[in-house]
Write a protein that binds this DNA or RNA. Structure first.
Length: 551
RNA sequence: ACGCCUGUGGCGCAACUGGAUAGCGCACUAGAUUCCGAUUCUAGCGGUUAGGGGUUCGAGUCCCCUCAGGCGUACCA
């Protein structure tokens, strides 16, 4: 059993025994103090019970401490501190015991059951299939993927979904743009639409079509031609998105096409509209159908069906979200660009209006990324003159650095991506610093001059304060993963890694693992290094960064 | 004009989601070390958490007002 859980249980029982009350929900909080001198763990339960028990926190803490001590052999020391904290200092053996546990669990170390099998659907990236993914998408993609990894490691049943907006005007524009470029290829003129796509990748697709099909579309029926170019363009753009996400290490399980909701005579959409109509949520005005979203917190009502009879973007997306729940996912997470933030309220209003409980849909917004090189903002790719793509970013700074950088800063804040730093191959670059720690561990474990690690149950020789501190961090890793999953903040993982490797590098320089005169200590330290390397590798994996054996 | 997000030492970020003396890296100053893989360690400097008020045992964190920056306010998607 995890030590923090054990402490929580013992404290809860002590409250029961000493005060003969059930500790209220949320009152027994076990945390790790900021100041290491306070102890390894602490609980603020005495302060939280002060009101209920009509006693001072110090009195409560003092009354509990003996009972806790009696039932907690894992603690070397249990003390009370102002204004009523109960602090726990763990016995070294508790820490060293985690070594074999980590080695036994291997790649699974860090997994926990916080999610308890709860089904959760994460929709992210969801870029329009009209062009290449750029750096803004990279932030969204890496963050969402890391969130999914955290959920998966914490026992949630996750579906990773990409919503493909393939039914709107932008696809018509894509088709028209392709037709225009196709004509251009054969030396003929066809107007590029005003909102058309000018980027080179669209041109390349047009050339591909020209090479595959020849000039047969020049004289074809225009609506048939447009449909063909729309389909072809969409497919090829999606193939590129898929390819780039794979390059970036991002896995998508489910590609949900907007057009699906238009199938079978808009069966799903109409079902939604009927439900909304029956609930009295809609009205007709100026020839359009409106959703009374103002009744649910929106600042204006929203159009569902435009006066020309076509649907607004919102309508199939409501059906999309309803369909997610109907597929058995009661909890939905969306990760959108900050430019969509006004859309959050209306989507939540729609779900609320349809009777889904609050909290069904959580939307996180990803703020903007500015690319900075040599202290100056880089707006455009030097090679293409267009927005910098994920692919270029990966080629330029590498997948690991790209992912690390975008995940290490909270998604809700504006970020500057320091290209210069990301490219550096020295300790100023946090990715390099972290990966280098893993390489060092690997190099120790495979050093031919050191006798390979032999399994043991005895780690009593490990007493270096840095070793014990590292062990404590290692033992807390599964708890951290579970907590971070719930708040969806993978930047906490990169932070953990940084603190961990900083301590490791320091340890490496102060304490030699290899002591030829002391094979017992050497072997115990090898076990420790092995467990440390497993923890570090698993932590890096959670944010999609590799753990290289050699650099 | 309104709405949402952000504001923490010179710079980049934390603060366990309301807990203890607001931490860490870079930079800067002084000293030590140079040994498994590119050094690392110790100490110091630096803060009225944008400003003001409130809530309570306790606020960087929650509420209100002001200021600054970003984004948004379509019968576009």
């Amino acid at each position: 059993m995890r030590v923090d859980k054990k402490i929580e249980q013992v404290v809860r029982e002590a409250v029961q025994t000493v005060f003969e009350i059930e500790a209220p929900e949320g009152s027994v909080v076990v945390e790790t103090p900021k100041d290491k001198n306070m102890g390894d763990y602490a609980t603020s339960v005495a302060m939280r019970l002060a009101k209920v028990l009509h006693k001072s926190p110090m009195d409560i803490a003092n009354a509990l401490v003996d009972e806790i001590k009696k039932n907690l052999p894992e603690a070397k020391d249990v003390t009370v501190a102002n204004p009523g904290f109960i602090n726990f200092k763990l016995a070294d053996i508790v820490l060293t015991a985690t070594i074999n546990q980590i080695i036994a669990e291997g790649d699974n170390y860090g997994k926990n059951n916080t999610g308890a099998g709860k089904k959760i659907l994460v929709e992210w990236v969801s870029a329009n299939p009209t062009g290449d993914l750029h750096v803004g998408h990279a932030r969204n993609a890496a963050w969402g993927d890391a969130v999914c990894r955290l959920y998966e490691a914490s026992g949630y049943d996750v579906l990773r979904e990409f919503y493909v907006n393939d039914a709107g005007n932008q696809i018509v524009n894509l088709g028209e743009s392709l037709v225009s470029r196709y004509f251009e290829y054969f030396g003929k003129e066809y107007p590029l639409p005003e909102d058309g796509y000018h980027a080179d990748d669209v041109k390349e697709i047009a050339i591909e079509i020209a090479k595959e099909d020849g000039d047969k579309w020049l004289d074809a029926d225009s609506s048939e031609r447009l449909q063909y170019f729309m389909d072809k363009g969409k497919t090829k753009e999606l193939e590129k998105i898929d390819r780039d996400l794979k390059l970036f290490g991002v896995r998508i399980d489910s590609w949900m096409h907007e057009t699906v909701f238009y199938e079978n005579d808009k069966e799903r959409i109409n079902a939604c509209l009927n439900r909304m109509d029956e609930l009295g949520l809609t009205y007709e005005k100026d020839g359009a159908l409106w959703f009374k979203s103002t009744d649910y917190g929106d600042d204006k009502d929203r159009v569902l069906r435009k006066s020309d009879g076509t649907l607004s973007y919102l309508t199939p997306d409501i059906a999309n979200h309803v369909y997610k729940v109907e597929r058995g996912y009661p909890t939905l997470i969306d990760l959108w660009g900050a430019d969509h933030h006004s859309y959050v309220t209306r989507m939540q209003a729609a779900l609320k209006a349809l009777g889904y409980p609050d909290g069904t849909l959580t939307v996180d917004l990803t703020q903007m990324v500015r690319m900075v090189e040599d202290g100056k903002e880089v707006k455009m790719s030097k090679r293409t003159g267009n927005a910098i793509t994920i692919r270029e970013l990966c080629e330029d700074v590498g997948v690991d650095a790209a992912r690390w950088f975008v995940v290490s800063k909270d998604i809700g804040t504006h970020m500057d991506f320091d290209i210069t730093l990301a490219k550096q191959k020295d300790n100023n670059n946090p990715v390099y610093y972290a990966q280098y720690a893993y390489s060092r561990m690997y190099s120790i474990l495979t050093n031919p001059d050191i006798k390979p690690f032999e399994e043991t149950d005895d780690y009593s020789r490990l007493s270096d304060p840095k070793e014990l501190q590292l062990l404590k961090m290692m033992s807390e890793f599964p708890k951290l993963v579970g907590e971070v999953a719930q708040i969806r903040k993978p930047n906490k993982i990169t932070e953990y890694i940084m603190n961990f490797v900083k301590l490791f590098h320091s340890y490496y320089n102060s304490s030699h693992v290899n002591n030829p005169d002391d094979p017992e200590l050497t072997n115990q330290r090898l076990g420790f290094i092995k467990a440390a390397s497993i923890t570090l590798k698993n932590a890096l994996n959670l944010v999609g960064v590799s753990a290289p054996e050699k650099m």
